[in-house]
Design a protein around this nucleic acid. Structure first.
Lengths: 294, 294
DNA sequence: AACAATCAATTAATTTTATTCATGAATTAA
DNA sequence: TTAATTCATGAATAAAATTAATTGATTGTT
């Protein structure tokens, strides 16, 4: 009934003062404009202008329509501008899922320059997924998965963005503090502090303790890295964390990193995305930025 | 570019869950809907839905468009409803112009039941006009003129709505208070208080004093009726007002109405409108209500 | 007062756009 | 597997918008 062109005409006629001038601005002939307004007036059952000689005066209905036009037309223009940005991948919400606790510390280092470089893109970080991180990617719950465990499935794409070493953290007073590396048996009488996740997903278990058939004396789950390191610093136990993370915290806590086994445990963080999103610039940009920051 | 139909489709598809069902609701064929969305997607350069098998999932662009649709479509519907009211004369602003001071008192009695009966119509009262009341009507500055002086011109229509008698007002202690009627010569030594308008437009001059060639001793213009009557009550002068108005004020001021001349001065209040507004119900209604209240 | 210029409305012709019809491929449910 | 449903597509058709050409009216100028 009321179409966009009608609102545009009413607004432009007010600007220009005549139908002919408005028509030109709108790339219409005067006749076309006259026809389409006439049709609208007939449908509404009321005139929009009083035609007095060659000058026009808005009726009350016309004044109301002008107000509607001034309100709605800019919203449509804005919508089109934003959609153009969506189309070019300049705008969106990047929903990032996290599958590993320490990844969060790393993510923060990437997100902040990213937000500065892409002012029109929002970043959302989620941590819990009903069907796991991969499922969340497939179900469009998230657009990007930060994980140490890539799973190469059709439709998904994983890229390594960061290498790090998983190390044992002990207090400076601890017997192992001076050791070149830790052996599994040296933890059998220790309290091991970890994030509260399934034991199978902890590297120190599945790559270090379990192959040697050893369990720590006590296993204590802690949610946050800060508390975890406070516990370690005060000698209440040992933990396993990325080396870079430990080094960052060393200024605040009296803790020491120790290699896990002679070789150490090498880890990588991967970013997983859907292949269908490959054309979205802002997704690409996040991966590129992640790799450059390392 | 983005047209109303597109927003309607996006919204309806979300409601119905499929293009086919949405098409039916919108009285389109599935094909027509498919074509028009395809065109929009091509223009925008981005898909609105991810087609996964036969199920649809909104893209980010689609989600944004849905939000736009939910925001704008109701505004368009509301605009159409209001324009329907404008067309049927159920909505508008009735701008009333006043040319006579005491008319205002009468107008108040009409406006209040009118506003109750026409909740969608606003009333505006104006008192000053650059080119007089008639000019204000012609120039659409007002929609209705309340005046004692109808001027029958083509394009205008005047209807009498209220008969009253213009009387002299004196204090109860005044010599004329007991008189059956006042003669012009009895005012030659009086102070005459009037509203501040041109002398030619005052009935007491052009129908009473001037025919007898008499002038009052002092002529004092006063803006407001209340002050005017306070002056009269305190014996500072006499005034000319409608009888009904004097009677209403008698409970508050010690004043008395006296007939002007043996016959008295009969007056009428007229409502003037443009003939082009005759189809507006709310204008008609005001006139009808005025006549019934009298 | 006559004249030219400008404006808006109108009609008929034309072009553009939207819609339908017919069909096929893909997916889902039985 | 079959049958039914959904969506997309191309060609045909219907509808709508636009244009060209003209008219009547108004305004400004000489």
């Amino acid at each position: 009934m009321i179409e966009r062109i009608h609102l545009a005409i009413i607004r432009e006629v007010e600007q220009q003062g005549s139908l002919t001038a408005a028509a030109e601005k709108l790339f219409l002939t005067q006749s076309a404009l006259s026809h389409s307004i006439k049709k609208l007036e007939q449908q509404l059952g009321t005139d929009i202008w009083l035609r007095e000689g060659r000058s026009l005066r808005l009726t009350q209905a016309g004044q109301y329509l002008l107000a509607v036009a001034n309100r709605l037309l800019p919203q449509l223009s804005l919508a089109e501008e934003r959609l153009r940005q969506f189309a070019q991948g300049e705008r969106g919400t990047l929903r990032i899922g996290m599958e590993c606790h320490p990844c969060y510390q790393w993510l923060l280092k990437v997100v902040s320059p990213y937000l500065a470089a892409w002012p029109d893109v929002d970043v959302d970080v989620k941590q819990k997924f009903q069907f796991g991180g991969i499922g969340a990617l497939f179900s469009y719950e998230i657009d990007m998965l930060v994980t140490p465990d890539p799973l190469y499935k059709p439709g998904l794409k994983f890229v390594p963005v960061f290498d790090y070493e998983q190390v044992l953290v002990v207090s400076r007073q601890h017997a192992l503090a001076q050791a070149e590396y830790a052996r599994p048996d040296q933890l059998s009488s220790e309290t091991l502090i970890t994030y509260p996740v399934d034991v199978d997903r902890l590297d120190i278990y599945n790559q270090f303790l379990q192959p040697a058939g050893i369990s720590p004396q006590v296993h204590k789950p802690i949610e946050t890295t800060d508390i975890m390191l406070q516990m370690v610093a005060s000698g209440r136990g040992v933990a396993a964390l990325p080396r870079w993370l430990v080094e960052e915290y060393q200024s605040r806590f009296d803790v020491v990193p120790v290699k896990l086994g002679k070789q150490g445990i090498a880890k990588q963080i991967y970013l997983g995305t859907r292949e269908t999103d490959r054309e979205a610039d802002y997704v690409h940009a996040f991966i590129a930025l992640s790799q450059s920051i390392g």
